[in-house]
């Protein structure tokens, strides 16, 4: 019985002790290191210092932005919340990449589309220029893309080979 009571008291003490430390932590801010701040700042650009990301920019203004990030992180904000906070305050240009909306979609679609178009063009050129390896019938079918001179040369080439 005495043993049971002892365990109970021990448990109760631990519980309250835990509760106390938890209360202390709730009052304190989330600890934020310089590295945490830089992690967020790396994805942001101030509107004045062009193309220098916030984590490495030495100016006073950027220093203040970093303090602001620290405050927000300490208040428990997420990276996304901080990013959108700066974007609403200063415009999308503070973000390291254009947000995927409106005209900005061009950024993500156009260059790959052009490269693919280039690849298709290249593939077509290669097939067109490879035509002489096939028989004459198939060549004449693709004549619209090649032209007469081209055909003559193909025929010459074939004659030479036969000879």
């Amino acid at each position: 019985m005495a043993k049971k009571a002892f365990v109970f008291v021990l448990l109760a003490v631990t519980f309250f002790a835990n509760l106390q430390t938890a209360a202390v932590f709730a009052q304190e801010k989330t600890p934020v290191t310089d590295d945490d701040v830089n992690e967020v700042a790396r994805q942001l650009y101030c509107p004045v210092c062009e193309n220098i990301s916030l984590d490495v920019c030495p100016t006073q203004a950027c220093e203040q932005w970093r303090s602001l990030i620290r405050e927000k992180l300490e208040a428990g904000w997420t990276t996304e919340q901080i990013n959108s906070y700066f974007a609403t305050q200063y415009g999308d240009r503070v973000l390291a990449e254009p947000p995927k909306k409106g005209i900005n979609w061009l950024v993500y679609i156009l260059p790959p589309a052009m490269i693919i178009a280039g690849a298709v063009l290249l593939a077509r050129t290669i097939t067109r220029l490879r035509a002489p390896k096939k028989n004459i019938a198939s060549v004449s079918r693709t004549a619209d893309t090649s032209g007469d001179k081209y055909l003559t040369r193909v025929e010459e080439e074939l004659k030479k080979r036969k000879g």
Binding site: Q43, R93, V94, L95, A96, E97, P98, I103, N104, V107
Partner: peptide
């Protein structure tokens, strides 16, 4: 530049892009 002309807003392309 295009974005600034069309929407009036500039955008940034960081190294990640």
């Amino acid at each position: 530049l295009l974005s600034e002309l069309v929407t009036g807003q500039k955008v940034t392309f960081g190294p990640a892009w």
